[in-house]
C-alpha cells in the first residue's frame, strides 16, 4: 500500500512539465526515504534524477519498496487536471497495475480522482558515483534559461567555460558567434540573485543546447540553478525543490574528435 499526500501539489505538476519532453516512460521508485526517479532520454545522452523526500509529504505511507512504470506524457495529462493550489495524493495498492491521483481543492469543495494504468518498463539503472567537481556555478535559474534560449537562436552547442572571473557561455553558428559572461556577483540584495563560482580548476566543456534548453523547463521549481562541471564527467544541472529534494539533469559533453 502506498499513499503520499503532497500539500503543495503544484510541485509535482511542475516536475512533470519539466521532464515529460525529455523522457517518455520512467519508473517511479517509492521507498521509506522518498519518491524518486532516474531515467535516461532515448538517445542515452541525458539523465534525469528526481528525489522528493518523504519528510516533504504531509502524509507518507509506503509499506514496501515499489517501482511504478508510468508514461510521463499520460501522467502529465492527468496532473494538468489538478489546480495549482490543489493537494495531490498518490495512491497504489501492492501488486496493482494502476495508480490513483487524487486532487483536493484547498477549500475541500472539489475532490477528483484519476486512475492511470501502470506499465512494465525495462529501464537501465545507472550508478552515479559521488564526485568532486572542478567548478560549481550557482546562478539565477531565469538568467540561465534566458542564456540557453538566446544562444540556441544562434548555434546548436554551448561552450561553458569557468574561470575565477566568471562563467562564459559561447556559441557559434552560420550567422556568427556569441559570448555571454556572467561575473561572480555576491553583493546583490537577495541571495537568489547572486552568481557564485566555486572553482578548484578552470574548466571548459561543450554541450548540446537542445538538452540544456529542455532542462530549463525546471526553472519554475527554483530561483537558482547549480551547474557542476568537471572535464572528466557529465555536467550536472540541479534545481532544488523547496525543502523536499531536487531534480538533477546529467548531460554528457560533446568532444572534439
Amino acid at each position: 500500500m502506498l499513499e503520499l499526500r503532497l500539500v503543495q501539489g503544484s510541485l509535482l505538476k511542475k516536475v512533470l512539465e519539466s521532464i515529460k519532453d525529455l523522457v517518455n516512460d520512467a519508473n517511479f521508485d517509492c521507498s521509506s526515504s522518498g519518491f524518486s526517479l532516474q531515467a535516461m532520454d532515448s538517445s542515452h545522452v541525458a539523465l534525469v534524477a528526481l528525489l522528493l523526500r518523504s519528510e516533504g509529504f504531509e502524509h507518507y505511507r509506503c509499506d514496501r519498496n515499489m517501482s511504478m512504470g508510468m508514461n510521463l506524457g499520460n501522467m502529465s495529462k492527468m496532473l494538468r487536471c489538478a489546480g495549482n493550489d490543489d493537494i495531490i495524493t498518490i495512491k497504489a495498492d501492492d501488486g496493482s497495475d494502476t495508480v490513483t491521483f487524487m486532487f483536493e481543492s484547498p477549500t475541500q469543495d472539489k475532490i477528483s480522482d484519476f486512475e492511470m494504468k501502470l506499465m512494465d518498463i525495462d529501464s537501465e539503472h545507472l550508478g552515479i558515483p559521488e564526485a568532486e567537481y572542478q567548478s560549481i556555478v550557482t546562478m539565477p535559474s531565469a538568467e540561465f534559461a534566458r542564456i540557453c534560449k538566446d544562444l540556441s537562436g544562434i548555434g546548436d552547442t554551448v561552450v561553458i567555460s569557468v574561470t575565477k572571473e566568471g562563467v562564459k557561455f559561447s556559441t557559434r553558428g552560420d550567422i556568427g558567434t556569441a559570448n555571454i559572461v556572467c561575473r561572480q556577483n555576491t553583493t546583490v540584495d537577495k541571495p537568489e540573485e547572486a552568481t557564485v563560482i566555486n572553482m578548484s580548476e578552470p574548466v571548459s566543456l561543450t554541450f548540446a543546447l537542445r538538452y540544456m534548453n529542455s532542462f530549463t523547463k525546471a526553472t519554475t521549481l527554483s530561483n537558482t540553478v547549480t551547474i557542476s562541471l568537471s572535464s572528466e564527467l557529465p555536467v550536472v544541472v540541479e534545481y532544488k525543490i523547496a525543502e523536499m529534494g531536487y531534480i538533477r539533469f546529467y548531460l554528457a559533453p560533446k568532444i572534439e574528435e
Binding site: 535516461m40 542515452h44 545522452v45 541525458a46 539523465l47 537501465e124 539503472h125 545507472l126 550508478g127 552515479i128 558515483p129 552547442t157 561543450t206 548540446a208 564527467l233 557529465p234 546529467y250 554528457a252 559533453p253 560533446k254 568532444i255 572534439e256 574528435e257
Partner: peptide, 14 residues
C-alpha cells in the same frame, strides 16, 4: 568534428 558522448561511458550500468 564534434562527437556526442554517451552517458553510459561515464556511469556504471546495473
Amino acid at each position: 568534428c564534434i562527437e556526442q558522448i554517451d552517458l553510459g561511458s561515464y556511469f556504471m550500468r546495473f
